[in-house]
Design a protein around this nucleic acid. Structure first.
Lengths: 337, 337
DNA sequence: TTGTAGGCGTTATCAT
DNA sequence: ATGATAACGCCTACAA
């Protein structure tokens, strides 16, 4: 049932070599011969065996992507990234290998299996940590990889949305609306983008001479329950904030939920904003003000970069900071007077 | 830089065979020898080359999943499925190969590449069509596969949520609330589950002696814009329905949007329900009544089945219909009196 | 307990 | 224009 070059060779009377080259389009094959072989291949439904091809070519034509599995996982971020990466990979004729890993699991092992085992030609990393062992490993292994996000050492190819700008914009927006008591639900500090986001928030306050109130800065874990917990702490303060900026939309949605439960009308009594613009956000009640990062587009570009690296070509621009877009919705409320 | 069995053999002084078997845990290797070889392998960071291993074993230890890429794509369904499948696959030590395909593209070619090219040991199919060429192909190729969803011939392993029951339940629910003018936004009829869902709806009406009004049955395309279009037609009817059941949540959300735009308050002036319970639904305004299918759980079970098939074992139960859960939310409104 | 000798399917090199 | 041969890295009879 399995058709190999061998099969075609026997049935056609030519050698394996000739069959192989006829199919590969080499010029030194008689057109008659080629036609006959191609017809036969079609007829028998020949499909090259990838394992053999890879063993021979030392290439896998596959891109790897590790998805961290949180339990909270309807994470739309990865779906979008996956979509972008998968689509673009397929246009290059590359497969996409997904490794889905429970958190805490030895994630590094997954990387080693993929990389050193020659399963993939290159890796796409996302959600980087400040000291990311994966980056260290891939750099050390001298294996092609691209990153969405940054780490403390930035001497590797990455594409990221400008986190500083994003949160600066959000904070400006609220200050613009008249808020001064603006709280911030941060991201886990070990994440690559955590610092930049918080700096953006703080810088905007400072720009306007608003002192930074440490009570207004709480840490979140990127999940909705995390947002709930954080917001509860903020609303329990003696002087509760009039606006809350969350490090991502999921946490912002959690915060909104708490506000509602405590009888506050989001967009009137309190303003809330997030970051990501996940689909949920535009449908939330009220729709959530946020910052959009073009994740799918980032996925495309990541693959472009990665393929370039895999081919051994030079990157004309190995680090891109993408301009975010502020999306103002009803959760911001109206400007205070 | 690459460490192969060859490398270990040279450095250790043993033959490739011995090294191979020492690492594979064969019993006929001197424990001293094994220890030395293992230590060496660790030290040098040996990782088996997958391509070679696959070529030899004729197995890929990989499961394939094709994701259809619609442009409307924030489709949470596949993310959930992917999560379930990926997670379970990894517990079996299997990789997950994703093929993301633009719609209309020769999807079949993707399958052929994966299957006949020996890239994957088995396939997970989702969103099946009524006459699904993929199923025909995989059956013909005698290649292990499992399906989420059904087709017109059901002699293959699948797991599906009971679509008939689901829409029967939804319709019962609305009839219970006092509705009689209940419209249905259907799914593309070529989808495997389309018929069962509509039958569930119709059967419930018939059970209660409510005539089936063809004007109340319109076809949708599973997208939100599709739901918008369908709802617009329904609301333009002389006697507009008092309740709308959509074939999935995305369309239901589109319908809700139209209702709002036309000045109707969903949950009061008109009732709306969907199917899937995507994350969006619980956050919609008002939250959407729907039916939940445990997608991730289905993903686990699909992989269990598939691995069983790959190993050549028998399935004790090759077709499972899963009981859906009705989730009543505010979009149903209160019972009419 | 260890080693030798194939072979998995493909491509590249070198003859013919 | 075509074919024989080797090699990619691994596994597994079969020998020793």
């Amino acid at each position: 049932m399995k058709v190999t070059l061998q099969t075609l060779a026997e049935k056609s009377g030519f050698s394996i070599t000739t069959v192989s080259r006829a199919l590969a389009g080499y010029s030194d094959v008689n057109e008659q011969t080629r036609a006959r072989i191609k017809a036969l291949a079609d007829e028998l439904g020949y499909v090259p065996n990838q394992a053999a091809r890879r063993l021979q070519s030392q290439q896998s034509n596959t891109i790897g992507l590790v998805i961290p599995l949180t339990d909270d996982f309807s994470d739309p971020f990865f779906m979008e990234l996956l979509t972008g990466v998968g689509r673009q990979a397929s246009t290059y004729g590359y497969d996409l290998l997904i490794s889905a890993h429970p958190p805490g699991d030895e994630e590094m092992e997954a990387y080693q299996r993929l990389v050193s085992g020659s399963r993939v030609d290159g890796m796409v990393l996302a959600r980087t940590h400040i000291n990311d062992p994966r980056i260290a490993y891939l750099k050390d292994a001298n294996h092609p990889f691209v990153v969405n996000g940054r780490a403390n050492v930035d001497d590797f190819p990455f594409i990221d949305v400008d986190g500083f700008r994003s949160f600066h914009m959000l904070t400006e927006h609220f200050i613009d609306y008249g808020h001064r008591d603006i709280a911030y639900i941060g991201c886990p500090p070990d994440l690559g983008y955590a610092a930049a986001r918080q700096h953006g928030y703080e810088a905007s306050l400072t720009d306007h001479g608003i002192p930074i109130n440490q009570d207004y800065i709480v840490e979140g874990d990127l999940t909705k329950p995390g947002g709930v917990a954080a917001a509860q702490r903020l609303l329990a303060l003696n002087q509760r904030p009039s606006a809350i900026i969350a490090g991502n939309d999921l946490m912002a949605l959690g915060a909104m939920q708490v506000c509602r439960q405590q009888g506050l009308t989001v967009g009137e009594d309190i303003a809330v904003a997030g970051f990501d613009d996940i689909p949920l956000s535009s449908h939330a009640d009220p729709p959530l003000t946020t910052v959009r990062q073009p994740i799918r587009e980032i996925g495309y570009q990541l693959v472009d970069m990665l393929i370039t690296l895999i081919r051994g070509d030079m990157l004309d621009e190995s680090q891109r900071l993408i301009e975010p877009t502020l999306i103002i919705r009803a959760s911001s409320g109206k400007p205070l007077n």
